[in-house]
Simulated scan of single mutants.
Amino acid sequence: GTINMVCQRQLGREATPEEVKNIYKEKSKEFNTYPQADRMPGAWELLQKVKAAGLLPMVVTGSGQTSLLNRLEENFPGMFRRELMVTAFDVKHGKPHPEPYLMALQKAGLKPEEAIVIENAPLGVESAVAAGIFTIAVNTGPLDCQVLLDAGANALFPSVQALCDGWEELINKLA
Rank of each mutant, 00 (worst) to 15 (best):
N70T: 09
A37K: 07
A130D: 11
I133E: 09
N120K: 04
A137R: 02
A104P: 05
Q146K: 13
I136Y: 08
L46V: 05
D150G: 12
V59G: 09
M85I: 08
N75I: 03
M40N: 05
I23G: 05
F89H: 06
A15E: 10
A162S: 14
A15F: 00
K25C: 13
W167D: 12
G64P: 02
L46G: 01
L102Q: 15
A15S: 12
R82W: 10
L156V: 10
V60W: 03
S159D: 14
T2S: 08
A88T: 12
Q146D: 15
L11E: 06
G166F: 10
G124I: 02
K25P: 11
R81V: 06
H97Q: 02
N32Y: 08
F134R: 01
E113L: 05
K111A: 14
I118C: 02
N32D: 14
C7T: 14
L68I: 09
D90V: 09
L170S: 09
D150A: 10
D38A: 10
G1H: 07
D150F: 06
M103D: 00
A153Q: 01
D38E: 13
A115M: 04
V50L: 02
E18H: 15
N139F: 12
T140A: 08
A43G: 06
L174N: 10
P57V: 03
V59L: 15
T135V: 03
E26L: 14
G94R: 13
N172D: 08
G166K: 03
K173E: 13
K25S: 14
W167E: 07
L163S: 05
P57I: 01
G1R: 07
V125N: 14
V147S: 13
G12Q: 05
S159G: 02
G42Q: 06
G78Y: 04
D150L: 05
E169M: 15
A43P: 04
S127H: 10
T87I: 11
H93D: 15
A131C: 11
A151R: 09
K29V: 07
Q106I: 01
L46W: 03
C145W: 06
P98E: 04
T2E: 12
L149D: 07
T16H: 04
L170K: 04
A175D: 06
G109D: 14
A52R: 04
V91Y: 08
I3G: 03
G42F: 01
A121V: 06
T61V: 03
I23Q: 13
Q8M: 11
D144C: 15
P122T: 13
V91G: 09
W167N: 05
L149C: 12
D38P: 07
T33K: 05
V91T: 08
R81Q: 14
P112V: 05
D90R: 11
L11Q: 09
E119W: 00
P112T: 05
A88P: 00
E74R: 11
Y24L: 13
V117G: 13
Q36C: 07
F76W: 06
Q8C: 03
N22G: 00
F31V: 01
S159Q: 04
G141W: 10
T140H: 06
Y24T: 12
F76V: 07
T87G: 12
P142C: 11
I133G: 07
L55T: 05
M40H: 04
D38T: 04
E114R: 01
L69M: 13
M79N: 00
T2W: 11
N139A: 10
A175H: 06
V6K: 05
N32G: 03
R82H: 11
E113C: 02
G132N: 10
M85E: 14
P96S: 10
G62D: 00
P112W: 07
